[in-house]
Amino acid sequence: MPDATGLELIGQELGSAVLDTVFFRDRAKLVIEPDAIRPVLAHLRERGYTFMASLHGVDYYPQEPRLGVIYELLDMGRVDRISVKLRVPTEAPEVDSALPDRPGDPGWRTAVHQEREVYDMFGVRFRGHPDLRRILMPEDYEGHPLRRDFPQGGEPVLFTYNEPKRPRAPA
């Protein structure tokens, strides 16, 4: 992990893109402007954080903006980790995709499945993702189940015995 000073230095290099730096339990985190995600990731890659360990979503309900996307980056040479976090509102949950967008761009190919999962579970749309579909839930599913206001349980499970035998009569 970069220490608290190292994190501040990285934060200063990135300038106005960084909203906040958090150093908590020896772990470094940058909170950034959602629109600055691609330049920030590119800059961190140049600093040696070349491996994206994880990309996941979170819902901060009832705080606003509600949805968060977190990128866990890793520098394998120095064994150093840093998290990057951004927040988007539920009304317009759009972020640039971390995938390579042109030939020659290193990008983060590992994000294909993980961005699809965040879209599936939280409804965050990644601009430029070539194949942004649901990945774990059925294709015709409505809603984004990991949002905090999505109720738990009550999902009817369709087995042959409770399948409607014929269309219901109109009420």
Binding site: R27, S54, H56, I70, E72, R81, S83
Partner: peptide, 18 residues
């Protein structure tokens, strides 16, 4: 309150819990 990512080496690679 807080957020933590904790990675370990599972038989299949990096298993992390956030």
């Amino acid at each position: 309150p807080g957020e933590v990512y904790y990675p370990i080496e599972s038989p299949r690679g990096e298993l992390g819990c956030w």
